[in-house]
Nucleic acid binder design. Structure first.
Length: 500
DNA sequence: CGTCCTTTGAAGCGG
DNA sequence: CCGCTTCAAAGGACG
């Protein structure tokens, strides 16, 4: 995680942040919701606890809260969302056309069994959408839906709104453009898809609908958000579609990315900021301000997304995209889709030879089940399981149930265990379940270093973010700094000081 | 027009 | 096993 190794000092920022948040205006609106929220939250927590920390100390989550000053505002805010969702379940969640994110729900056993107890409808990541949030779209598990393989009303809503009927598994396969062969792996149950979005405007046929993650090579990825276009190439690029090149499959979004997608609009609205960099800083802070439970929701969504992605593109590897960027001629006119910003340093490009060398074990089994991982995965190398013919263990049994999700007991949803929040929350002594699994957090540390480097690394001359201590205070001293401060809850005073 | 910036997390590679 | 790098989204800003 973000936690800085030694940056403990920065961590303090967490507290600051929280406090700061309180000050700022956002809370006003939320206040009214307080009453509600407390209760909700409690429920939420309990449900989460049940699901994920079942054998664990139930109080863990609570404990965390207690220790850490809670970023009330945010929390409340979220609750607000939650409430909203529950309130308007029928309409709210699906009503808006989400930009995209055609998320499918995996019938993950884990999820089904543990993730949302029927009674805990509060946990929904989905937030209301005033505008739209992508997330909601992916939430298969709506507040009330709880991931049932075939939620009774969900489809209904969808169909009403979108006029689309619940997609069948085939649709999905079509939608995702599964590789021949891989289709079979998808379990039938996966078939429902909460989303209509994709069907949307473009009116693509079921079969023609691309997975959001797929981007045509020619499309400019950066601007084509897969989101709006649904991960896939957007709108009008139909022409480009015809290009023979195989579509680029994008990485599944991680928890934070999902969160960003969801909250971005909100932040923009509140702060009137437009720069993504600034917005992202705010979002990063807010992210840290979220409670574990709240983050857990996103982690879980991310996990599902990964699973789905994995099922859909078993042979895909994140590495594929690395190459995509550089193989084409890094940056040249081969803009194709992805070259994205090439970081200097071209090292290995040779790797392009291995088309399919997915990781998988980690995602599939989770950290707590490393014993199931293949050797290379344990060493953080490419997964050989898939290479070997897909014998992935449980992969795609047709039910899907087998898929990764370890039973609740063993495979707690990743998030919880997360180490994830080392950064700000020292407080939250992660009560997590012992074995925790695929926690989101494991990998984390890496970017600390990176973060630090960042400022130094490309001082691009312009004003932007001189040196951002992202954590606690440093803020961008750009025109938007005030807005950021506001958004994040920092007072100008603080801001000023830090900038100095 | 292309890339940077900025965030966290996931994945992968090299040492 | 650890550290580092890249990519994912996004959209204004910069060169």
């Amino acid at each position: 995680m973000p936690q800085l190794s030694s940056g403990g000092g920065d961590d303090m920022g967490a507290n600051d942040e929280m406090i700061a948040f309180k000050d700022e205006g956002e809370q006003e609106e939320k206040i009214q919701e307080n009453a509600f929220t407390e209760r909700d939250l409690a429920d939420l927590k309990s449900s989460l606890v049940n699901e994920s920390e079942i054998s664990q100390s139930p109080g863990a989550a609570v404990a965390r809260r207690g220790q850490q000053p809670e970023p009330r505002c945010y929390v409340e805010k979220h609750r607000e969302h939650l409430n909203g969702v529950t309130k308007q379940q029928d309409g709210g969640m699906y009503k808006t056309s989400y930009p995209g994110y055609p998320f499918l729900m995996l019938p993950d056993p884990y999820l089904q069994s543990s993730s949302m107890p029927p009674s805990s409808n509060k946990v929904s990541v989905v937030q209301q959408s005033h505008g739209m949030h992508p997330l909601s779209s992916l939430l298969p598990y709506g507040p009330n839906e709880h991931f049932s393989p075939s939620p009774p009303h969900l489809p209904t809503d969808m169909s009403q709104k979108t006029g689309v009927h619940r997609p069948q598994s085939q649709d999905i396969s079509g939608f995702y453009s599964l590789p021949p062969g891989s289709v079979g792996q998808i379990s039938p149950s996966m078939g429902w898809f909460p989303h209509s979005l994709m069907l949307g405007p473009s009116g693509m046929h079921p079969t023609g609908i691309p997975h959001p993650a797929i981007v045509p090579p020619s499309a400019k990825q950066e601007h084509d958000h897969y989101d709006r276009g649904m991960y896939a190439k957007p709108q009008g690029e139909a022409k480009r579609e015809k290009e023979p090149k195989k579509p680029v499959i994008k990485k599944p979004l991680n928890a934070f990315m999902l969160y960003m997608k969801e909250m971005r609009a909100k932040v923009i609205a509140e702060c009137t900021l437009k720069e993504s960099a600034a917005i992202n800083q705010i979002l990063g802070r807010r992210w840290h301000a979220l409670t574990r439970d709240e983050q857990a929701k996103y982690y879980e969504l991310a996990r599902k997304e990964r699973q789905l992605h994995m099922q859909l593109y078993p042979s895909w590897s994140a590495r594929d995209n690395y190459e995509a960027g550089r193989s084409g001629g890094a940056g040249g006119n081969t803009k194709d889709w992805g070259k994205k910003k090439r970081r200097k340093r071209e090292k290995q490009q040779d790797s392009n030879t291995d088309p399919g060398s997915p990781k998988k074990c980690r995602a599939r089994f989770g950290l707590n089940q490393q014993t199931d991982w293949c050797g290379p995965c344990r060493r953080k190398k490419k997964c050989i399981r898939y290479l070997q013919g897909g014998g992935c263990p449980s992969p795609a049994s047709s039910d899907g149930s087998a898929l990764d999700s370890p039973p609740p007991t063993s495979a707690p949803p990743s998030p919880f265990s997360s180490p994830a929040r080392p950064r700000q929350a020292p407080p939250p002594p992660p009560p997590r379940s012992p074995p925790l699994p695929s926690s989101p957090s494991d990998p984390a540390p890496a970017h600390h270093a990176r973060t630090e480097l960042t400022p130094a690394k490309r001082p691009r001359g312009h004003t932007h973010v001189p040196h951002v201590h992202t954590h606690a205070h440093g803020y961008v001293h750009s025109s938007s700094s005030a807005a950021i401060a506001k958004a994040t809850g920092l007072s100008l005073r603080v801001l000023t000081e830090s900038q100095i």
